[in-house]
Design a binder for these strands. Structure first.
Lengths: 251, 251
DNA sequence: CATAATTCTGCATATGCTTGCAAATTGTGG
DNA sequence: CCACAATTTGCAAGCATATGCAGAATTATG
């Protein structure tokens, strides 16, 4: 590796950091054949960019994809229950339900009644356990677990979902913008959520007010493809969605 | 484990504490190749942060306010530690592991270290969440969830497992009889467990003394096909297994 | 009560950080 | 082609931190 150019070197560091690796000063200075000081200065630059966190002896990736999904789910806020309980009346026994991952949908899974004739299909292990605890027939979608959202992603998960004919898909929301549509932070998650929407008759998004008007990296659906939005946002702040045919349900 | 950075080490401790694990000074000093004193100082730092409670010989997670359903599942109190901790030395980073469901294997999943180069494949959603919390690459096997054991069963699950080449399969035990072999209460679970054993180089059963000498409805494996048994039963009570070529590991 | 294990304390050492500065490299304009 | 400025890089001195060790104090355990 004869990349003596500062930018190329820093790019290499950036790549490793985004992969979750920790960088060690001494190792890097050897590998790139520059002095410790140079590496230190590079890492300081990356810290200024917000990509790295300098610590003694090197640098670490800036606090993981912002808290694991597990923590977010475990620390479910009471506000989510309001959204979840608004979703409950839409569910009838005998329906086939597709449940996404995420804190809000997880809250819904936790308050589901028994539904002896229904089937829940979900790529989220935490949601599956909650449904199983409620005594509901549960089908788990397999795949590699996405660290950010704790749901199964990948080709197998999408294929498995394409074989399902569901009545309602309840989608968690990373972001929802009137123009961009429903977004997800991870490409794999976006694909799975899209597959869920495709496999079901109605697609319903649960989104707290803090998720509205924001855009994530990947698009899941256009707003036209969304049948209903359950939110705690003010009625006037969701007119742009209503104009695109999205039914609004206020919590 | 090349975590030579002090902050990375403390982060690892933090991660384990938030998963409900107790930390042992001597074990940590070995694992991270630093002196006991250094680990002690680290834990004192974490105690000052409020995430640890130093006790004689190590530290414990500070009891947290409320327990949501997921916390109860993912952070359940480790009671089967004895068996699980005996399994730990068999695991090396880079291995592909197949983890069954059940309380004992779940306890193993909860004390797994980070294993950045390993892959865990499991049909048990609770186990998958525990591995994900440890930062391990996790592959979830999909299927209908068996109500009795909370693992994916069915043709799809068996097929998915047949495409895996694992180093070790850790099997939970419903029953283990010298003549009948390893048993399961549910036909679907038996098929999945058998597929796990077939897909891996070594098959290791974790069984408390109460599971030995009993027979369940369905056979998973003959004892000849079992490579190792980890149990807390007395040495004289397992001679019949040893005669069939099963390596015994006493907890 | 005696023994062993564990914890605390102080200290020497090693390692890493900061600052300032000089040499080398690159870019620019005459 | 040269002079000049800006950037990058390496080096050294002073300071701060982390680590490991040894001895004293404390706590468990039989």
């Amino acid at each position: 590796m004869a990349l003596t150019l500062p930018d190329a070197r820093q790019d290499a560091f950036r790549a490793r950091l985004t992969r979750g690796q920790t960088l060690e000063l001494s190792a890097l200075s050897q590998e790139f054949a520059v002095s410790i000081d140079t590496v230190r200065r590079d890492l300081k630059t990356l810290e200024a960019e917000g990509v790295a966190r300098c610590v003694r002896g090197g640098a670490m990736p800036v606090s993981r994809p912002s808290g694991t999904a597990l923590q977010r789910v475990a620390l479910a806020a009471p506000g989510h229950d309001a959204l979840a309980s608004r979703a409950l009346p839409l569910i009838e026994d005998g329906m086939v339900l597709l449940l996404d991952g995420g804190a809000t949908v997880h809250a819904l899974a936790q308050i589901l009644p028994s539904l002896p004739n229904s089937l829940v299909v979900t790529p989220a292990p935490a949601v599956a356990l909650a449904c199983l605890a409620a005594g509901i027939d549960t089908q788990l979608v397999g795949g590699r677990l996405s660290p950010s959202g704790a749901i199964s992603v990948g080709h197998g998960a999408v294929t498995a979902l394409s074989d399902v004919a569901a009545d309602i898909a309840f989608l968690g929301t990373c972001s929802l913008d009137p123009a961009f549509g429903l977004g997800a932070d991870d490409l794999g998650e976006a694909e799975v959520k899209r597959a869920m929407a495709t496999a079901s008759h109605r697609s319903i998004a649960l989104a707290g007010a803090d998720k509205l008007g924001r855009r994530s990296r990947h698009r899941v659906l256009n707003c036209q493809d969304l049948d209903m939005l359950i939110t705690n946002a003010s009625p006037e702040s969701v007119t742009l969605y209503k104009e695109q045919g999205v039914e609004i349900c206020h919590a």
